[in-house]
Design a protein around this nucleic acid. Structure first.
Lengths: 199, 199
DNA sequence: ACAGCCATGTAACTCGTTACATGATTAC
DNA sequence: GTAATCATGTAACGAGTTACATGGCTGT
């Protein structure tokens, strides 16, 4: 694997800074700081459990190609166990830690991006009958409750390890942020349903 | 322009249904139902004003290529004014309206996707000092207030044309959804800031 | 022995972006 | 006349997806 045939337009990466990775790369590096020595497969599972609620759930194939890139840049260390191809564990290197810290402290933060198909369809509510729109929002409430339960389960597994200073403090705060968001969506949609009724 | 060299793997599009366009195409079609006969340029402006808050702000080049595709599919009609290349106005065709209606009523709705760089960074709060995290959230509050003001301005221009049954009823409801979302974010982040303080 | 999960990857493709190029019209 | 805005596109690329291929390990 790892065909390093990339042209590499210049810059022999003097100190491993100022690269400008896609944010998902930093997200994976971040997951490694919370549980180092994971396989690509495990990393994907963690991403599915937590990252997906406020970032993305990358495809397996993307996790692996991302890890290859990070490994090529020396930001993670691929520990290949045994002789066969089986089970590669990835460890954050000092350089990886430095790049992540640099990113956290010195790069501007983007504003969140929302892709909200439900809101998009509500926008075009004039094209369909009121029942369709009502159904749309009610279905959304159901999906919302499901997601909320999933996130609540994640949050619950963090209990006891989320006091200030403990390992899962921040993940726990983020999970609560997510729960607050779901709750807010529920409230807003219910109010919208009421307002669509009064006519 | 319009090099129709696409292989078209089969299916001579018997009745113009079951195509499966990217959602952004439907979003543009939807904008055309709210203001027909717009140019690509104007469409982009409308998208920047409204769509960006809960979907995307497509690049100009994407608007044009999307319009070319829709035009090729017969879903919009390109009315080229004058002789020169100047000013092409796009009108929704009956087929376009049908496809949009079909999409609204018969395709499953995706769950919203959030890309939240602020939450992502908070997740890794253990890597930086508390002041950095606090600053992160305070900067976010500022950005949030700006966006909120922008959306409020949009919502205000809809006043008087947003009663039940009127043209901008649904856009107005969506704008209020967005305002509610911003308000919820503000409240959650302020609470997070308090909790980060108590230590 | 077989199913199901663990584990890793390649190939092809699509959406969407940035950078670039061009020119017409309007306002000062 | 010249700057800003209106208007339309092309080219190159990058992130991320789906489909596909492969094989080892574990439990029954």
């Amino acid at each position: 694997m790892s065909q390093e045939q990339e042209p590499v337009p210049a810059s022999p990466q003097p100190a491993g800074e100022q690269v400008g990775l896609p944010v998902t790369s930093y997200a994976l590096l971040g997951l490694l700081t919370l549980g180092d020595g994971l396989t690509g497969y495990e990393l994907k599972q963690r991403a599915d459990r937590t990252l997906r609620f406020y970032w993305v759930a990358p495809a397996m194939s993307q996790v692996y190609s991302e890890l290859n890139r990070l490994s090529g840049l020396g930001l993670v260390d691929a520990q290949r166990a045994g002789s066969s191809r089986r089970s590669t564990r990835y460890l954050l290197t000092a350089a990886g830690r430095a790049v992540l810290h640099e990113w956290m402290t010195s790069t501007p933060v983007e504003f969140p991006t929302l892709k909200h198909p439900v809101a998009l369809r509500l926008l075009m509510g004039h094209l369909v009958d009121p029942e369709t729109t009502t159904q749309l929002l009610e279905d959304y409430l159901v999906a919302l409750a499901e997601r909320r339960a999933e996130l609540q389960a994640v949050r619950d597994t963090l209990r006891g390890r989320d006091a200030p200073g403990e390992r899962y403090r921040h993940p726990s705060l983020v999970a609560e942020w997510g729960l607050g968001y779901f709750e807010s969506e529920r409230a807003i949609v219910e109010e919208l349903l009421e307002r669509l009724d009064e006519r």
